[in-house]
């Protein structure tokens, strides 16, 4: 049986890392942030979301914080997640890899305009 793998980094895991860059979030917060940063194209379901969270926790790319309430969402205490420095490094290297890809794509002139 394989261990959870983050190499190559799945896009869901990358999106979660990106979502956590600015602030600590709970699961639903991450889901909404990911939906927002992808213009609604990626809506993480609970299974995919927590499976990715578990992988990132195992790799110490994110960490769990103590339970606390989200006042906007009611009384329920929620588990929050925070990006670690390793997670930040991983997100950066993934972004650089994508940027490299982008450069190649641009060089091959498959992109119209220069909006990226």
């Amino acid at each position: 049986m394989p261990k959870r793998k983050l190499d190559p980094l799945p896009s869901s895991a990358f999106q979660i890392l990106l979502a956590l860059v600015g602030e600590d979030l709970h699961g639903y917060g991450i889901m909404r942030q990911v939906a927002e940063q992808t213009d609604g194209r990626m809506r993480l379901g609970p299974g995919t979301l927590y499976s990715s969270i578990q992988s990132l926790l195992e790799g110490k790319f994110i960490e769990e914080l103590d339970l606390r309430e989200d006042t906007k969402l009611g009384q329920e205490r929620r588990r929050y997640y925070r990006l670690t420095s390793a997670g930040r490094k991983l997100a950066r290297s993934e972004a650089e890899r994508l940027a490299d890809l982008l450069r190649v794509a641009r060089a091959k002139k498959i992109l119209r305009g220069d909006y990226v």
């Binding site: 699961g27 639903y28 609970p46 299974g47 927590y50 969270i53 578990q54 329920e76």
Partner: peptide, 11 residues
């Protein structure tokens, strides 16, 4: 066990 409650909460 690890994420059942969180998944339900997210739902």
């Amino acid at each position: 066990e690890a994420y059942g409650n969180e998944a339900l909460q997210l739902f």
